[in-house]
C-alpha cells in the first residue's frame, strides 16, 4: 500500500474520531469531596487555604512523624553501608508509611485505586531491593529505592490531603 493512501486513510479515521468519551465511573464524588476541603479557593486565591481542625491535626502529625523519621534516619545511616543501609532505609520507610496510613485511617481517599498503586510501588521497591542484594553499594539503585519510597509517601499524602498545584 502506498504512503499516500495511508495518509488519506489516517485523515479519514481522524475525522471520524469523536471528541467525547464518558468515564465508566462517577468522578464527581471525588471532585466534590476535594472541593469541600477547599472552600472559596477560586474567589480568593491569595488567601491561604482554611484547614479544618481535623485536617490540621493530621498535617501536624505527618510533619512530626516525618521529622522524627528523618532525624533518627540521619543518625542511623551516617555509619551504615551496603545491605545494612538498604535494611535501614526500608525500615525507616515502613515506619513513616505506617504512621501516615494510621493518621489517615479515618479519612476517605480521593481515588479508589490508590491501594493498587501503593502495591505496584511495593513491587517496584522489591525489584530494586532484589537488585541491591547483588550490588548493595550501587548508588543509582539506592537512589531509585529512595525514589520509590518517596513516591509511596507522596501517593498516600496526595490521595488524602492533596496540595493543589497551579495550572
Amino acid at each position: 500500500m502506498s504512503s499516500r493512501s495511508f495518509e488519506q486513510d489516517l485523515d479519514k479515521q481522524l475525522a471520524k474520531l469523536g471528541r467525547e468519551k464518558q468515564p465508566e465511573r462517577d468522578l464527581w464524588q471525588g471532585i466534590d469531596y476535594a472541593l469541600a476541603n477547599e472552600p472559596n479557593q477560586h474567589v480568593e486565591t491569595i488567601r491561604r487555604p482554611v484547614l479544618g481542625n481535623k485536617l490540621y491535626l493530621v498535617a501536624a502529625t505527618v510533619v512530626m512523624f516525618a521529622w522524627m523519621g528523618w532525624f533518627s534516619f540521619n543518625q542511623q545511616t551516617e555509619k551504615l553501608i551496603g545491605s545494612e543501609l538498604v535494611a535501614a532505609l526500608s525500615e525507616q520507610h515502613e515506619q513513616q508509611k505506617n504512621a501516615l496510613l494510621v493518621s489517615y485511617e479515618q479519612q476517605t481517599a480521593l481515588t479508589e485505586n490508590w491501594q493498587q498503586q501503593l502495591e505496584d510501588l511495593d513491587q517496584a521497591a522489591d525489584a530494586v531491593k532484589a537488585a541491591l542484594k547483588n550490588e548493595p553499594n550501587n548508588i543509582p539503585l539506592l537512589k531509585m529505592l529512595q525514589n520509590v519510597h518517596h513516591q509511596q509517601i507522596s501517593l498516600i499524602e496526595r490521595v488524602h490531603a492533596p496540595k493543589w498545584s497551579h495550572i
Binding site: 468515564p23 465508566e24 465511573r25 468522578l27 471525588g30 471532585i31 476535594a34 472541593l35 477547599e38 479557593q41 477560586h42 474567589v43 486565591t45 480521593l110 481515588t111 485505586n113 492533596p162 493543589w164 498545584s165 497551579h166 495550572i167
Partner: peptide, 21 residues
C-alpha cells in the same frame, strides 16, 4: 483508563480554582 480518571478529577479540582482566569 485509571490514569485518565485521576487526571480528569485533577482537571476539575484545579478548574474550580482557576476558572476566574
Amino acid at each position: 483508563k485509571m490514569l485518565a480518571e485521576d487526571a480528569a478529577q485533577e482537571v476539575f479540582i484545579q478548574l474550580w480554582r482557576k476558572i476566574s482566569n
